[in-house]
Design a protein around this nucleic acid. Structure first.
Lengths: 261, 261
DNA sequence: GGTTGTCCCATTGTCCGACAATCGGACCGG
DNA sequence: CCGGTCCGATTGTCGGACAATGGGACAACC
């Protein structure tokens, strides 16, 4: 509080250029932050491995010499970071690795609140998806291929106005991601599809020919992946994603619509 | 708790295909979760705009009819999601939009804990960075260009073993990101560079020619961006990123090294 | 005027203690 | 080996308390 201001006594109340600070702000962070940081460090250092149960709150409170409430606040912190979680209907917390969904939800928050528009997400997809498809084509396993086909059939089978249709499309993309054998890209991709999903649903519903175009694109992509033809996979995925934008245009949705729905 | 199991009485303890659930798991989530969700919803709906101060904990406790501790746990939740924060040395919490750094740190956790290897991150960079460079080349403003040049000079000026050198390299990438005018890509990029930074530092220190190669690449990229030559920007960025991998090889760091340092 | 000192209140960080609910087991009878 | 019963350990939530400190308001002072 009450920052110490250093001031040239002699001259010039000059408009302040970012002058050298002379003093760093003294760090005083609340106990719950430190507790959280301490536990986080142990987790990142693998001293607590995923799946390990966390000590009871009372234990932690004693070890850190703070009140249980304080520990609990720290735990909420870690919980929302996805570093710990409670397995549905269990009592103790266990250490966990942040799932893709975690990241994706965080990303969605960010995108919504930053007024990110549809084009921006789409542009990112245009960058990532084709390359992922190409990688997937060269690295896919037999199982990946089967999964893709299954998702494809599921989409074809989904009824006309099915709100789940988008889910299935997303799954198709996701499978492609895992087939690419690159977890980083999977995370990135997933965030994008998740962000796009709601508006995509509206698009598919209001553009009649959307479904058949998607079916067709998926078919081509599957074919390319089956033959491990990276170039072809890239080409068709590129078309496929481009089609999304066309769909939006046809549906009369402006490219500058914020993602927030 | 104690899930209700529905069981066909007559025949077949058949291995369970995902049968229709008949009952959804009853949702009992703790109060702090609901409080957090309620506030989160208001934020995402923009009823609470970024910068708005949150009501005092006591107020919230009264409104939600829960104890203040409960409110606080919810707040920690939101805090770690980056939806609210306390402006350094302020008392009240204010609504905020999750910063890129937030996401990046989350991503780093995920990457570290999932044993993501250097190649995976690198591969993702190979996908994203060249395209970003290309976009930046066509969309850059004069200010962007100046900033790039400044960062470039800063890097050249940085002393030999300077641990800050990597920071500066990261800044260069970041500027390129903002010049691309695509927030989504900026977020993605930033996560990658942040994840790579620590090991990159080691690489630069142990490979003598790394600095000059970086300087050279930056120079070429700047030139391309100046002339708004997307193709050239993409090409050189591609080379630049590829060089990182070479650097790692020269430094004797295995491509399969996990990101954890 | 602008700056500094003083005072007060609202609010946060932290603690204490308590209690119902329930999870995990141990223990037991068929 | 299975289903029922009992008990201790732990969590979710609450009530209340208190020191520390931010945010102002207001007076004093150059």
């Amino acid at each position: 509080m009450t920052q110490v201001r250093v001031r040239r006594s002699t001259t010039s109340a000059r408009q302040d250029a970012p002058r050298a600070p002379l003093f760093d702000p003294v760090e005083r962070d609340p106990a719950y932050t430190r507790v959280a940081a301490a536990i986080e460090a142990k987790i990142l250092a693998r001293e607590l491995k995923a799946g390990d149960p966390l000590p009871a709150e009372t234990d932690l409170a004693q070890q850190f010499r703070v009140h249980r409430s304080t520990v609990r606040e720290a735990l909420r912190r870690l919980e929302s970071a996805g570093l710990i979680k409670r397995p549905a209907g269990a009592k103790r917390m266990v250490v966990s690795r942040p799932a893709a969904a975690q990241l994706a939800s965080g990303m969605r928050h960010a995108l919504v609140l930053h007024d990110v528009t549809f084009v921006e997400v789409w542009e990112a997809m245009m960058v990532i998806e084709p390359e992922v498809a190409a990688l997937a084509a060269t690295r896919r396993s037999q199982a990946d291929l089967s999964a893709m086909i299954a998702a494809h059939e599921a989409f074809k089978a989904s009824p006309k106005g099915d709100p789940q249709a988008v889910e299935i499309v997303a799954r198709f993309f996701e499978i492609l991601g895992t087939a690419s054998r690159n977890q980083v890209l999977v995370l990135a991709k997933q965030s994008l599809t998740r962000a796009l999903a709601p508006s995509l649903a509206r698009m598919i519903d209001s553009v009649p020919q959307a479904r058949s175009r998607i079916v067709d694109a998926q078919k081509r992509i599957i074919a390319a992946v089956r033959e491990k033809n990276a170039e072809e996979a890239r080409r068709w995925m590129s078309k496929h994603v481009r089609d999304f934008k066309r769909g939006y245009e046809v549906a009369g949705i402006s490219p500058d619509t914020p993602i927030g729905m």
